[in-house]
Protein backbone atom coordinates (compact mmCIF):
# COMPACT_ATOMS: atom_id res chain seq x y z
CA UNK A 1 0.00 0.00 0.00
CA UNK A 2 1.65 3.21 -1.13
CA UNK A 3 1.53 6.25 1.12
CA UNK A 4 2.24 9.46 -0.70
CA UNK A 5 3.13 12.74 0.96
CA UNK A 6 1.95 12.06 4.48
CA UNK A 7 0.99 15.13 6.47
CA UNK A 8 2.04 15.52 10.05
CA UNK A 9 -0.95 15.00 12.32
CA UNK A 10 -1.05 17.10 15.46
CA UNK A 11 -2.85 15.84 18.54
CA UNK A 12 -3.95 19.20 19.84
CA UNK A 13 -6.36 17.89 22.42
CA UNK A 14 -4.17 15.09 23.70
CA UNK A 15 -5.94 12.27 21.88
CA UNK A 16 -4.08 9.07 21.17
CA UNK A 17 -3.80 8.56 17.42
CA UNK A 18 -3.23 5.10 15.96
CA UNK A 19 -2.45 4.27 12.33
CA UNK A 20 -3.45 0.74 11.36
CA UNK A 21 -4.07 -1.45 8.31
CA UNK A 22 -7.70 -1.81 7.23
CA UNK A 23 -8.27 -5.31 8.66
CA UNK A 24 -6.58 -4.53 11.96
CA UNK A 25 -8.48 -1.27 12.27
CA UNK A 26 -11.83 -3.06 12.27
CA UNK A 27 -10.61 -5.46 14.96
CA UNK A 28 -9.31 -2.56 17.04
CA UNK A 29 -12.62 -0.70 16.72
CA UNK A 30 -14.43 -3.85 17.85
CA UNK A 31 -12.09 -4.20 20.85
CA UNK A 32 -12.46 -0.56 21.83
CA UNK A 33 -16.24 -0.79 21.65
CA UNK A 34 -16.18 -3.66 24.11
CA UNK A 35 -13.91 -1.61 26.40
CA UNK A 36 -16.50 1.17 26.64
CA UNK A 37 -15.79 3.49 23.67
CA UNK A 38 -19.43 3.37 22.59
CA UNK A 39 -19.77 6.77 20.90
CA UNK A 40 -18.46 7.41 17.39
CA UNK A 41 -18.25 11.19 17.36
CA UNK A 42 -17.24 11.58 13.73
CA UNK A 43 -16.04 9.66 10.70
CA UNK A 44 -13.93 11.56 8.19
CA UNK A 45 -12.59 10.59 4.77
CA UNK A 46 -9.81 12.29 2.86
CA UNK A 47 -8.45 11.76 -0.68
CA UNK A 48 -4.66 11.35 -0.64
CA UNK A 49 -4.05 11.18 -4.41
CA UNK A 50 -2.25 14.18 -5.97
CA UNK A 51 -4.54 16.76 -7.54
CA UNK A 52 -2.71 17.05 -10.88
CA UNK A 53 -3.19 13.46 -12.12
CA UNK A 54 -6.35 12.28 -13.88
CA UNK A 55 -5.98 8.62 -12.89
CA UNK A 56 -9.49 7.33 -12.43
CA UNK A 57 -10.29 6.97 -8.75
CA UNK A 58 -7.12 7.76 -6.83
CA UNK A 59 -7.92 4.65 -4.74
CA UNK A 60 -5.99 6.01 -1.82
CA UNK A 61 -8.16 7.31 0.98
CA UNK A 62 -7.57 7.96 4.65
CA UNK A 63 -10.43 7.27 7.10
CA UNK A 64 -10.36 8.83 10.57
CA UNK A 65 -12.60 7.47 13.35
CA UNK A 66 -13.03 9.66 16.47
CA UNK A 67 -14.26 7.65 19.48
CA UNK A 68 -15.39 8.76 22.94
CA UNK A 69 -15.67 6.86 26.21
CA UNK A 70 -18.31 8.47 28.49
CA UNK A 71 -17.18 6.61 31.64
CA UNK A 72 -13.44 7.27 31.47
CA UNK A 73 -13.99 10.57 29.56
CA UNK A 74 -11.32 9.66 27.01
CA UNK A 75 -10.98 10.33 23.29
CA UNK A 76 -9.27 8.17 20.70
CA UNK A 77 -8.57 8.58 17.00
CA UNK A 78 -7.95 5.66 14.65
CA UNK A 79 -6.70 6.13 11.09
CA UNK A 80 -6.52 3.70 8.20
CA UNK A 81 -5.61 3.99 4.54
CA UNK A 82 -8.00 2.09 2.26
CA UNK A 83 -8.46 1.22 -1.43
CA UNK A 84 -12.00 2.55 -1.91
CA UNK A 85 -13.35 -0.39 0.10
CA UNK A 86 -13.79 -0.91 3.85
CA UNK A 87 -15.84 -3.07 6.19
CA UNK A 88 -18.85 -1.25 7.60
CA UNK A 89 -18.92 -0.40 11.32
CA UNK A 90 -22.67 0.29 11.40
CA UNK A 91 -23.17 -2.93 13.38
CA UNK A 92 -20.84 -1.60 16.12
CA UNK A 93 -21.88 2.06 16.16
CA UNK A 94 -25.47 2.91 15.24
CA UNK A 95 -24.64 6.47 14.25
CA UNK A 96 -22.17 5.22 11.60
CA UNK A 97 -25.02 4.31 9.22
CA UNK A 98 -25.52 7.86 7.93
CA UNK A 99 -21.81 8.71 8.17
CA UNK A 100 -20.92 5.88 5.80
CA UNK A 101 -23.74 6.77 3.42
CA UNK A 102 -22.36 10.31 3.27
CA UNK A 103 -18.82 9.09 2.52
CA UNK A 104 -20.12 6.75 -0.20
CA UNK A 105 -22.03 9.66 -1.72
CA UNK A 106 -19.17 12.19 -1.76
CA UNK A 107 -16.08 9.92 -2.09
CA UNK A 108 -17.36 6.65 -3.57
CA UNK A 109 -15.83 4.42 -0.88
CA UNK A 110 -17.84 1.19 -0.67
CA UNK A 111 -18.63 -0.20 2.78
CA UNK A 112 -19.21 -3.96 2.97
CA UNK A 113 -22.21 -5.29 4.97
CA UNK A 114 -23.87 -1.87 5.15
CA UNK A 115 -27.69 -2.16 5.53
CA UNK A 116 -28.52 0.49 2.91
CA UNK A 117 -25.61 1.94 0.98
CA UNK A 118 -27.13 4.69 -1.14
CA UNK A 119 -26.70 8.36 -2.02
CA UNK A 120 -27.90 10.56 0.87
CA UNK A 121 -27.35 14.19 -0.18
CA UNK A 122 -27.07 14.13 -3.96
CA UNK A 123 -29.58 12.95 -6.54
CA UNK A 124 -29.60 9.25 -7.47
CA UNK A 125 -28.79 10.06 -11.13
CA UNK A 126 -25.78 12.24 -10.25
CA UNK A 127 -22.58 11.21 -12.05
CA UNK A 128 -19.29 11.04 -10.10
CA UNK A 129 -18.24 11.70 -6.51
CA UNK A 130 -17.54 15.42 -5.99
CA UNK A 131 -14.98 15.33 -3.15
CA UNK A 132 -12.54 13.10 -5.07
CA UNK A 133 -9.49 14.93 -6.34
CA UNK A 134 -10.00 13.72 -9.93
CA UNK A 135 -13.60 14.99 -10.10
CA UNK A 136 -14.07 17.72 -12.68
CA UNK A 137 -16.95 20.13 -12.29
CA UNK A 138 -19.20 19.91 -15.38
CA UNK A 139 -20.77 23.06 -16.80
CA UNK A 140 -24.26 21.94 -15.83
CA UNK A 141 -25.69 18.88 -14.20
CA UNK A 142 -29.46 19.32 -14.01
CA UNK A 143 -31.94 17.19 -12.15
CA UNK A 144 -34.65 15.52 -14.21
CA UNK A 145 -37.98 14.06 -13.30
CA UNK A 146 -39.87 16.74 -11.41
Amino acid sequence: MCRRKRLEYRAFWGEIIMELEAIQAFKMLNNLKNKGFITLLSLMAEDLSPIETDISGGENFRLTYTLYNPVLKEFKEIQTIVNAEMRSVSTLFKSAKYDEMEIYDLFGIKFKNHPKLDRIFLDKNFVGHPLRNNYKMPETQTKKGY
Partner: peptide
Protein backbone atom coordinates in the same frame (compact mmCIF):
# COMPACT_ATOMS: atom_id res chain seq x y z
CA UNK B 1 -6.95 20.43 1.36
CA UNK B 2 -9.97 19.21 3.29
CA UNK B 3 -12.61 20.66 5.63
CA UNK B 4 -14.92 18.27 7.46
CA UNK B 5 -17.90 19.40 9.55
CA UNK B 6 -19.60 17.39 12.26
CA UNK B 7 -23.08 18.86 12.61
CA UNK B 8 -25.26 17.69 15.54
CA UNK B 9 -28.62 17.68 13.69
CA UNK B 10 -27.32 15.03 11.29
CA UNK B 11 -27.26 12.57 14.22
CA UNK B 12 -30.51 13.77 15.86
CA UNK B 13 -32.41 12.76 12.70
CA UNK B 14 -31.27 9.15 13.12
Amino acid sequence: KRVKWRTPSFYSIQ
